[in-house]
Design a protein around this nucleic acid. Structure first.
Lengths: 328, 328
DNA sequence: CTGAAAGCGCTTACAG
DNA sequence: CTGAAAGCGCTTACAG
């Protein structure tokens, strides 16, 4: 492996000059530059970026902590994120947090040990307490979920509007017992969507019934149990708002397999709008989030932050969602 | 930020001793170790791994080049890979290659510039020529696809057996015009599956018709076109072997939307067996690959290779697939 | 068992 | 416009 030293020797210049050429420093003369460039090409020299990183005190690496990579919603966000670093000179490490309790610590450790320059937290993959401790030590961007007490940049859809849109559509169809399966965590998206839900109910003159709000993970059994629980409590569920496409797909599966105790096939609207909503039968109506953009913009924001180019920016960046009515 | 130097000063030892303590060198005395450990804790010292990496000439980073992260098949492989690095001291960069022609170059550049120690190529994300050039420069592991001329470690299912299993089942059902939508690339999995297909046909006494083999990407339009092309050529397709679950899901969608010109609903078997096959309606019969294991074992193999612990190992590691009959 | 010193391969302030 | 030299923060062969 050749080094700047050897290139310098071959080109009969100093290592400083070689370094300047590599970094396109306009100060070097054209003649010198050409000479050095020729030697670099001839020797097939590649700079050792491990050395550069140490010297610059930067890993040029960012982390995206994300619940799960196998949920298509997060896969799309990851895709946007990965494409956003392309050409920036940064690498991105996608860090799933749901499979193991301590994985998040590993990613934070990367920041502690100078192996990462900043981090994006997608959804509620971190506690508010941890976040507070990290907030003034490291560059952070939030994606999807925010925390009221923390002034951190956040990219998200308008969840209140989304919840309102979805509930309003079901109400427009004349439904009165609309169940809502939320995730397991109390997060800003869930709170926002519920707020929208309540506004829509209020406008329609229908009482909000907390019994219709149930928690469930993206797990078939939990979704069945959650909804059957509402039925068993005496509510004739006629509409369902699903926290994710996966949950909605499980609702359809439950209906098909006869494991969901319902009087009539419910109207169903899911949040996210991944490819899943188009391959189920019936296809699922949903609030479509701009997943790719969420990932892409989060990375861009973090990169600007790392370069201190974000001074003037608003903390909250709302990206538009779409509402696509399909067969449910 | 504190450094070994400051820790050394506080603990009244040399930086060498601090380094030895950090790295659990058994040579240091217990008293010294305790003293240093106490100071490290007190100062909340975290080693700067950028410096360690330069000194050790290793990034402790591996790359997994993978066609697409949004295809659930590859998402599961990624998941296995990510969990396999957990606790190893290595990081993994998941690098999608399908969205941009030059992304693969970026990942190879990471190897050139000492920012990655080794690479896993999933499926045919690289040309044989590129691979040949890289083969003796960097540690490489292949996942899914292999190249006959190159003695590189590979983790894969037995595609010939899988193709045989799938074709045999369709033949057992009395079908005689079995279409096979392959991917767009000529890869070892496709060749293997076709070989198995032909063996099964031969055993059943049915002629192999190359017209039934059609290429298609994981794209709705291409899948429709490919299969309609066979019908238009005069074949009464009654069974379909789909190269991926996504293609199979598109076949179902095509049938539902009436865009597939077929006499009867075809029997359908897909390769991969991701969650998609269970949320479609009907659910899809498939050759289920151990996706998580493919990713997990590929990483383990590469890590052993990096530590030179794989001297005795076979190049080819076959992992078992399952054949799950669902509703198609 | 411990320390002094060299060195990993870059970048950059400073001097000329 | 260019070079000599210091330094980023570690690890490790060597000496004692």
């Amino acid at each position: 492996m050749s080094s700047v030293k050897e290139v310098a020797k071959q080109a009969r210049v100093s290592v400083a000059t070689v370094s300047r050429v590599i970094n396109n420093d306009p100060v070097v003369s054209d003649k010198t530059r050409q000479k050095v460039l020729a030697v670099i090409k001839e020797m097939n020299y590649k700079p050792n970026l491990l050395a550069k990183n140490l010297r610059k005190q930067s890993s040029y690496t960012i982390i995206m902590a994300i619940p799960s990579i196998t949920n298509p919603f997060y896969a799309e966000i990851s895709k946007g994120a990965q494409e956003a670093v392309y050409g920036s000179g940064y690498q991105i490490v996608i860090g799933p947090t749901d499979s193991n309790k301590d994985q998040l610590k590993t990613y934070i450790q990367l920041l502690n040990t100078n192996l990462a320059d900043g981090i994006i937290f997608v959804s509620t993959s971190v506690t508010e307490e941890t976040l507070r401790e990290m907030a003034d030590k490291y560059p952070i961007v939030l994606c999807n979920a925010y925390y009221d007490g923390l002034a951190l940049p956040c990219i998200s859809i308008d969840n209140e509007k989304a919840g309102y849109d979805a509930a309003r559509e079901l109400l427009r169809r004349g439904l009165t017992n609309i169940a809502y399966t939320t995730g397991t965590r109390d997060s800003s998206p869930v709170r926002g969507r519920l707020l929208g839900d309540r506004t829509a109910l209020k406008e329609a003159g229908i009482d909000f019934r907390p019994e219709l709000i149930v928690r469930a993970r993206n797990d078939y059994g939990e979704v069945l149990q959650a909804i059957n629980g509402i039925t068993d409590a005496g509510f004739a569920v006629d509409g369902i708002l699903a926290h994710s496409d996966i949950q909605a797909a499980y609702v359809l599966r439950g209906i098909k397999e006869g494991k969901l105790r319902l009087r009539t096939p419910p109207h169903l609207i899911s949040f996210d709008g991944t490819m899943l909503t188009e391959i189920t039968n019936p296809t699922i109506s949903s609030i479509v989030q701009p997943m790719y953009d969420l990932g892409y913009l989060s990375v861009q924001r973090l990169l600007r932050k790392l370069k201190n180019e974000d001074a003037e920016e608003e903390m909250m960046k709302i990206v538009p969602h779409q509402f696509v009515i399909r067969e449910t």
